[in-house]
Design a protein around this nucleic acid. Structure first.
Lengths: 150, 150
DNA sequence: TACTTTTTGTTGCAAATGCAACTAAATCAA
DNA sequence: TTGATTTAGTTGCATTTGCAACAAAAAGTA
């Protein structure tokens, strides 16, 4: 059976569910950790790119970012050369959460990869990157209204 | 980098997003396809198991199932030996959608696995199954209120 | 230059999602 | 058999999610 995508869906939902529950005690509501880590890792990133990176709707990202700002975890900075874009950077409080999120993520990775050899884990990563690359085009196209034929 | 889980998250969100958009013309709202396929494949399954299978909150599954019933795609049948459970079965209209959903899913799988050899696709599936198995316990435990130490 | 298109961002809905808290049947334990 | 625990299902409420539809700056075109 070609059940790869189903397995991916199950794993993703399970892990997201776990993270959301665990980060509640950091006062991070559903999904927020996703955006915060990326902003910490790529300070200055703009909303549009963030949505693309995470694979989420632009308006969803907009509201998550808005909330992170309201809660004092990130700031929206004006760009000196471009009046339209807003560069996202973590505040000190936001930066402080980063290692906590990463620790949780590392733990989940330990659990997820348990029993896999280093070679297997690396092979899995390589294959997943190829799969992700394969579907990125379709995601973009369908999001923009293109119809896929099948 | 041990980015396996991030890749999985990105792939899952992208594919779910695509499916939700594509199934809108079948009058299936967000997520419904997930439940309907499983009920078609395992007629008589109960809500609780369905939620576990899909890795989604029990109450979310309850409402998705409720909506599928309201829309005439599934039925809730009483069990002759157990007054508490309700067995879920697809209606004719629900069954009719199954092959359409599968066709879309097969197409996405084609796109996702493009360029992978049969051996690579199989290896990916094997590894994903192990990962899924690895995290299932944690999902269950955390859902039930258990704290993970890390 | 003037125009068209694309990019980036926002708000208004409507819907899904999930935690709490609750019922009631089924199962377990004594 | 009685009582406690687990299983299965539901509803209330707050929140996230995402499609439409819009605005305005930027980039592309002629």
């Amino acid at each position: 059976m070609r059940d790869q995508l189903r397995e991916i869906g199950m794993i993703a939902r399970a892990l997201d569910s776990i993270s959301n529950i665990e980060f509640k005690e950091l006062e991070l509501t559903k999904g927020q950790y996703l955006y915060l880590v990326r902003i910490c890792e790529e300070p200055g990133i703009i909303q549009e790119k963030l949505a693309e990176l995470i694979k989420v709707d632009r308006t969803t990202a907009a509201r998550a970012v808005q909330k992170l700002e309201t809660n004092g975890l990130i700031m929206k900075q004006d760009d000196p050369h471009n009046k339209k874009i807003k560069r996202l950077v973590p505040t000190e409080r936001g930066k402080a959460l980063y290692p906590v999120i990463i620790r949780e993520h590392e733990h989940s990775t330990d659990v997820a990869l348990a029993g896999l050899s280093d070679q297997e884990a690396e092979q899995l990563l390589r294959l997943l990157k190829r799969v992700r690359h394969n579907i990125e085009g379709d995601w973009d196209a369908v999001k923009k209204g293109k119809k896929r034929d099948y």
